[in-house]
Structures are given as structure tokens and as C-alpha cells.
Amino acid sequence: MEEILNVNETYLTFRLGKEMFAASIEKAINIIEMVTITEVPRSPEYMMGIVNVRGSVLPVIDTRMKFGMPPSEVSRTSVIVTFNIEIDGDTTYVGALVDEPGSVIELTPDQISDPPNIGAKYKSELVIGTFKDEEDRFVLLIDIDKVFTLDELLEIETNTNTSDNIDN
């Protein structure tokens, strides 16, 4: 434990499939409604393409695929969350397609538990911790910078067993 700050931090939660995730609100720029995505040929499958956001080009990522889940099916609740991430010291914007935006939650450090142990493939540095949201759902708090700077697909599927383990 390098530092424990007794300051409340704010997080944005979102749903992918049946799982809930959260990222620091400072990383989220805005949430945009679903628009037509222009595919970029010959790019990885999880890179859905680009969209026009008020005259600028924003790459959109199928977050579900990036997290090792089946590809997203665009529904009425789907939105694109724009995150600012750092790649090689530069700030860049990425649109993450999520199934449904959640809420903005303020947490004290002691409300966040240590990351669960989710098997060999899981990279511990991607998950900062876990917590329960207001509907008592289990939420994985992820490090957005690291998630989107890695090229390969990730395996952070969780199951109820693991959530029981930390809920001690």
C-alpha cells in the first residue's frame, strides 16, 4: 500500500452483458448516443470503427470483446462513453461501446475491496478493486488507461464464485 488517501473519489459505472464495471470519472469525457459507426477495414475485430463527434474522428471499441465477452449487440440502451487515455505519454480519446450507462458513485477508499483472484489469465494490474453499488451489484473497478493501451483481448470475466470470495 503506497498511499491511502482519505478523500472520496467519484466513479462512473456501466454495464457490459450482465456485469457491472466502473472507471474513474476523471477519465470519462462524455457519453454520446449511438451513431452510425464507419468500419475501418483490416483492423482487429474489437475495433468497431470511427464515428463523427462534432467534426472530430473518434475511434470506437467493442468493450465487450475487449474484455473477452461475446461481441456487443447494439440495443436501445447502448451508448458510447468517451474516455481520455494515455498512450506513450500522449492523451488520446477512445469511445467505448457499452451496453448501458450506470450511475456516478462517490466512494470512500475503505468501500473499495482489493481485486479478486480470477484465475491465471487475468492481469491483476487492470483491476484496481471491487465494490458493491447502490443496487448491491458487484462492480469491478478497472484502470481504463491500461485496458485500452493493451493490444490483445483481455480476460476479465467474473463469476459469482469470485464475488463470494471477496465478500467475506
Binding site: T38, V40, P41, R42, I50, V57, P59, I87, Y93, V94
Partner: peptide
């Protein structure tokens, strides 16, 4: 011409995107 951004930097065959008058995106 708008660059596709860092995430597409390995993408060689597309040099960028352009936004047309009707808001559509062309590569």
C-alpha cells in the same frame, strides 16, 4: 484529413478520415 488516432497507428492502408458535409465519414 483527420488522423484516425493512436489506436489505429498500426493501420497503414488508411491515411485518415474525412467528415463530409452531411456528417458521414469517408476513409
Amino acid at each position: 484529413l483527420k488522423p484516425l488516432g493512436k489506436l489505429y497507428k498500426k493501420h497503414e492502408i488508411i491515411s485518415g478520415a474525412s467528415i463530409l458535409g452531411n456528417g458521414k465519414v469517408a476513409l
